[in-house]
Design a protein around this nucleic acid. Structure first.
Lengths: 231, 231
DNA sequence: CCGCAAACGGAGGCCACCGTCCATTTATGG
DNA sequence: CCATAAATGGACGGTGGCCTCCGTTTGCGG
């Protein structure tokens, strides 16, 4: 559908994720950008399941425009989170440059979890497999590899327990997602405390004393029906 | 699904939570029980947001019957989870009877998290405030108080870190919920590992060596759109 | 300045869920 | 056995999200 003949001029390589803005009319390009920004805000604020119409409205375009540019929600999601993912890779790279292996490892965990707090959609985007989004997948794999290196280094330095597994990062992210899900001021504090607990569990040299825990947050209970209430 | 009337002698008063089955016609009482059972299964399998119609169908009744007996989803939820909550109180009481304070503490965390895995709705039910359900709230508070005692004892015995806060149980439950959310075989294993990490972080006497970690589970990524796929 | 394909927006069909209403069935006490 | 109120079930109107279709507008190359 929506083939639009303009596709495929061979010189714009990298029609990577979702047919990049290659040859769009100026207004279209402008709207595309607005949509992306609106989607980014919306995803961050309410997670990946915001109604498409809400994104369109926020962007000041009609739904049709949204759908023409991003035929599926997935295409929109991968496009939106492409740079967040890049940020993550940046975090990992930065940590890899850190001469202190444990600090590098710790920083990644802390920063990633902090990002999750700031962006309600981040976790879902990260932990979801997008068979179509090649570049997206590639970049995630890159981040994973970097983290694996970080892990190995910290382990070899004797700071990280030997049985820490690569998949434990996913474990941490999902756990943090659970804590952060019902976004609130308290969520950020709770997340920090969670992370501190995790790091305490992960470290293996107990020669130095453990750092203090962030204060406990009075994590609120859910209000009834966390699902229906949204929107 | 033959109903089996065996349960319950009718004179048990206690029309506590939501207008108990006090004086219902026999068929109505029977249907009420079927609804509760269907709801319990449905909530366990898919969480609190199963369509009311699905519960009704599963119970073999019409929606009207369901709504007449339980005018709101909340009333159904509180009724269904009343005994699960009782189970929890049981777990806490049992732990209180344990002479070993740390084992008692540990057991509660482990069992509660295991229950979360077995019942997709448990967490939401527990962590949600039901202003109407007096008895429900009272019982939860009772469980909380018991856990607080458990906590204090373990701390006084020097096994639990002094800065463990009461709200950290909520933290654990929410984190576990995040891990378990996308139910799968792997989720149970992941949850066990998470719990082990938590306990490692919580213990304060590092004189004895830490127990082994359950094996890492290859926690799957989400498939795209965890929301729409349900049902 | 003009014509046309590209781009647009919103109406509308579809579907799932909610919660109510009412004609019919059924348990039960006399 | 019957009268009757309780109980039932499914149809139905309402809402909200998804996605497409189509008549109109608009950027842009000539």
């Amino acid at each position: 559908m929506a083939a639009d003949s303009s596709r495929m001029d061979p010189d714009t390589a990298a029609p990577d994720t979702a047919a990049g803005p290659g040859r769009l009319r100026s207004d279209a390009r402008h709207n595309r950008a607005r949509i992306l920004e609106a989607a980014r805000e919306a995803f961050a604020a309410r997670g990946l399941d915001v109604p498409m119409a809400a994104i369109a409205r926020r962007a000041g375009v009609g739904v049709a425009t949204l759908y023409r540019r991003f035929p599926t929600r997935e295409s929109l999601v991968t496009e939106v989170f492409a740079d967040q993912l890049a940020d993550c890779v940046g975090v990992v790279d930065e940590a890899l440059a850190d001469p202190d292996p444990w600090r590098g490892f710790r920083t990644v965990i802390e920063k990633v979890c902090a990002m999750q707090v700031a962006d309600r959609g981040l976790t879902a985007a990260f932990l979801t497999e997008f068979p179509g989004a090649v570049e997206f997948e590639r970049e995630r794999m890159c981040a994973e590899r970097g983290f694996a290196t970080l892990t190995r280094r910290a382990q070899e330095a004797g700071h990280l327990r030997a049985d820490f597994a690569r998949t434990d990062l996913t474990l941490v992210m999902k756990a943090n997602e659970g804590v952060v899900a019902e976004s609130s001021e308290a969520a950020a504090a709770a997340s920090r405390r969670l992370v501190a607990y995790f790091l305490q569990a992960f470290r293996s040299d107990h020669t130095t004393s453990a750092p203090d825990l962030p204060p406990p947050a009075p994590i609120g209970l859910y209000h009834f029906d966390p699902l229906t209430e949204g929107r």
